[in-house]
Design a protein around this nucleic acid. Structure first.
Lengths: 244, 244
DNA sequence: CTAGAACCTTACGTTACGTGAGATGCAAGC
DNA sequence: GCTTGCATCTCACGTAACGTAAGGTTCTAG
């Protein structure tokens, strides 16, 4: 016949919990043993075991000890409410973590194969990503993702190679002073093409990107850009359109 | 022209962090301002800002402050490794949380509409679920889920209604003593049918369930079952098969 | 020169325990 | 009866990343 009293150590090893955990539950009043010896040793009875089972179950569902205490204190409708609340919180958390995961995967994809000590590049890329994400809505981000898929691996690499050249060339033209030369106007056309390729012709997105560049000077300087250059490109493109 | 020194408050409001956070970063050595006034007031320079940007970026990716410190201390290949490790951890976390979510959703589905103070039932169900999950692999769990979908809403309800009746009837037969009566043999056939319906004919699953019932006496008593009854059903079914 | 804002340090609170430290209890063998 | 060894007890600090005072000093505008 089974005994109906257990000491902490026995209970701990039977349930897989630790003695410290049971002490803790006792301390916060979540599970106080129904009996104590004169020396203060804890003795748990059958009802304590039952309660502990419930506690473990709720714990496995991710509830906090406080929430569990509420659930067990008033077995009214509170348990259901708490579980529902918990569920929505959990779903929201998962959503956020999945977003995070996508970002990390995007990073891994870009830097998974490069062997060199590219941590600097990595940090820069992360910075650019986070800055962008401040000004761009998730929907726009998705649009950008789809756009990237459409462009394909090579398209992206090509654009990444072309941009610095284009920026350097444009800066050289700007150094020659205004009005923008014929060459500058050609470059500005290509510039706008690349921008359009990037945004997929979404003007709202283009506007958001502009705002990001305006508000975050650090972002622009990452690519050797600044307001002056933007202004020059704008003039050159206006001249190009007027000339055509 | 912008100034190149900022005080904590300014930096805090510009970055959206709190003064306390910057204090904290200073305290743990993650971001120490490059200057201090004689009175001890912190002054952050451009390079501090840059570092803070990196810190914020990595923070947004979910890295711990310690990990960030490592990333920034040795810009070797450590950053990439840490990010990859972080990604795998995150994916694992998401997986676990999604499992949890499914369980909670299953609970919500069962108890979402019942208005009464069914918290007791709720707790019992949770207990049964968690006990089962101790003995059943996730694959088997999925199999059960699919099985439930196949049975449909009504099938489940019907089985839930039938089981208690069947158990009670069987217990009555057992009280009449052995050998099992004709009626008991009939009941045992139906019993096995229901079990088979539940497990979908998966013998491994049936074995796991049996193990669960054997190892967890609390589980069986939830449904008015015990070893004696199981034994009787076994005998009755054996007699039924022998008789046919 | 003074009021008020900004700043400083110190330190406790948060979660669910882990990990000792030092003291005592309990059953068994001598 | 006494010791040995294991189980148990009660503090009490540590964890992560800050929040939130408390109480004192410094800066800055009027």
């Amino acid at each position: 016949m089974d005994k109906s009293q257990w000491r902490v150590g026995e209970l701990a090893s039977r349930t897989g919990l630790t003695v410290r955990t049971l002490h803790h539950y006792d301390q916060i009043g979540l599970l106080r043993p129904s009996q104590r010896t004169m020396a203060g040793h804890r003795f748990y009875g059958r009802e304590d075991i039952a309660r502990l089972q419930q506690i473990r179950s709720l714990r496995q569902l991710g509830l906090s000890l406080q929430e569990i205490a509420v659930c067990l204190k008033r077995p009214g409708s509170s348990a259901k409410d708490i579980l529902e609340l918990h569920l929505t919180r959990l779903q929201e958390q998962i959503r956020l973590q999945q977003q995070l995961c996508r970002r990390l995967e995007a990073l891994a994809e870009r830097f998974g194969d490069s062997e060199g000590p590219s941590t600097d590049d990595l940090l820069k890329t992360i910075e650019v990503m986070t800055m962008f994400e401040k000004y761009i809505t998730p929907e726009q981000m998705e649009k950008l993702d789809r756009r990237r898929v459409e462009l394909g691996e090579e398209g992206i690499k090509a654009a990444e190679q072309e941009w610095p050249q284009l920026i350097a060339a444009m800066r050289a033209e700007m150094a020659k002073g205004e009005p923008p030369s014929e060459r500058a106007q050609q470059l500005s056309r290509r510039w706008m093409e690349l921008v359009s390729q990037f945004t997929g012709g979404d003007s709202g997105l283009a506007q958001s990107v502009r705002t990001a560049y305006e508000q975050e000077p650090g972002l622009a300087t990452q690519f050797g850009l600044d307001g002056q250059l933007f202004a020059f490109v704008g003039k050159a493109y206006a001249a190009a359109k007027a000339g055509s």
